[in-house]
């Protein structure tokens, strides 16, 4: 028997969907800035496996020669990113929603089982509440990453006024590098997140828009499936 169940509160849905284009904008304008001094690479000594980024990349996304425009947008969107993130964290903290989101002792072993299941090695998924262990780790981690971007960003932006922070982060160059690494980590998160959403299906995705999901209760066993 089917029933409708509330899943995501409106505050979580709105902050999530506001964050999506804003974070995209932060990354895009961040790349417009990075273009002006694109020094990072994967390589050893004189050997470069991959340069961040090849010319075709900048050309494809139209990122070249836009440093000043990139900075102007970046320092505008950063306010929305910070305020939206602050509202999300405040809401989850005060409403008690954080209990669904913050990993506990069991989350890490559960996350390993989820991973084995997703890779097709383990037959059944471990039983879970609203979010499984892997999700808890991911959703708490992404909030910490957001804070990390704000902190490293502030350190680069006002390096003399916040020199104590810069020292803590290992210096100006280190802070810039950390800011960049976090951006790359967002892209990884995004890839996994979107593929998991596609796997989880329509009912799950719809819940992030409407707030509600349909649950089917097996009348005999009394078991609930999302």
């Amino acid at each position: 028997m089917k029933r409708i169940e509330a899943k995501h509160p409106w505050a979580v849905r709105w902050t999530h969907w506001i964050n999506f284009p804003i974070l995209f904008g932060m990354i895009y304008t961040g790349l417009m800035i990075y273009w002006a001094s694109d020094t990072y690479r994967i390589g050893w000594g004189s050997f470069t496996l991959f340069h961040f980024f090849p010319d075709w990349f900048y050309a494809l996304f139209g990122l070249s020669h836009k440093l000043s425009n990139g900075m102007a947008w970046h320092f505008f969107l950063a306010w929305i990113f910070a305020i939206n993130g602050f509202l999300y964290v405040t809401y989850t903290a005060l409403s008690g929603e954080w209990r669904y989101l913050v990993p506990d002792r069991n989350s890490f072993s559960e996350a390993a089982q989820v991973m084995l299941h997703d890779l097709g090695i383990r037959k059944s998924a471990p039983p879970q509440g609203r979010f499984n262990g892997a999700q808890k780790i991911a959703y708490t981690g992404i909030v910490l990453m957001g804070m990390g971007s704000l902190i490293t960003g502030l350190a680069i932006y006002k390096v003399v006024q916040f020199s104590w922070l810069v020292t803590l982060l290992g210096g100006y160059r280190a802070a810039r590098y950390e800011h960049f690494l976090l951006t790359m980590a967002y892209l990884m998160f995004f890839l996994v997140h979107v593929s998991q959403v596609l796997r989880a299906g329509w009912n799950n995705f719809r819940a992030m828009v409407t707030g509600y999901e349909i649950k089917t209760e097996d009348a005999h066993a009394g078991r609930t499936q999302a």
């Binding site: 028997m1 089917k2 029933r3 409708i4 719809r206 828009v209 409407t210 707030g211 509600y212 349909i214």
Partner: peptide
């Protein structure tokens, strides 16, 4: 009957949400 009603209700919510 219940499932039909639930689906109808969800369609409404979906339309509103999207």
């Amino acid at each position: 009957d219940n499932d039909r009603a639930v689906e109808a209700e969800m369609r409404l919510r979906t339309r509103r949400g999207f």
